[in-house]
Amino acid sequence: MHPVRRQRLLLVLFVVVFSSAAIGLVVYGLRGNINLFFPPAQVVAGEAPVGQPIRVGGMVVDGSIERSAEDLSVRFRLTDYSGEVPVVYTGILPDLFGEGQGAVASGVLNDNGVLEATEVLAKHDENYMPPEVAEALEQSGYDHSGVPK
């Protein structure tokens, strides 16, 4: 074979082998690391899987935040105004987390329908709302600040 052509062939083989390895890594990386988002209404309706990592987002229900006096555990409820999901979390909450504000909790749903969150995200300025939460609110007929349309 012509040396230049042979080199091309080897090059292509190298790229193919390498990209398959990379694709393998990607598939492995994606497996179990994709968190599906569920609005509270779907969680209440039992559409969310139990025991798998998911994300739930909505507004934090007024008066629902209960902090423990002993440790850093917190309970609160997330709503999209058509369903409410109770969440438990242990740790420090973000600065802009608060009642009547949008938040996204990621964690695992237990058998009692309580989301055991490992991470809670709040919006980072007054005007911003996570797109998923905005859409979840939209679907139940509320605008971004929780006012019915």
Binding site: L25, G29, N33, I34, N35, L36
Partner: peptide, 16 residues
């Protein structure tokens, strides 16, 4: 649906 791809994916791919 709405998914998010978290740090575990990126670490699993990028670090090797």
């Amino acid at each position: 649906g709405k998914v998010s791809v978290g740090p575990p994916y990126f670490n699993a791919v990028f670090v090797p």
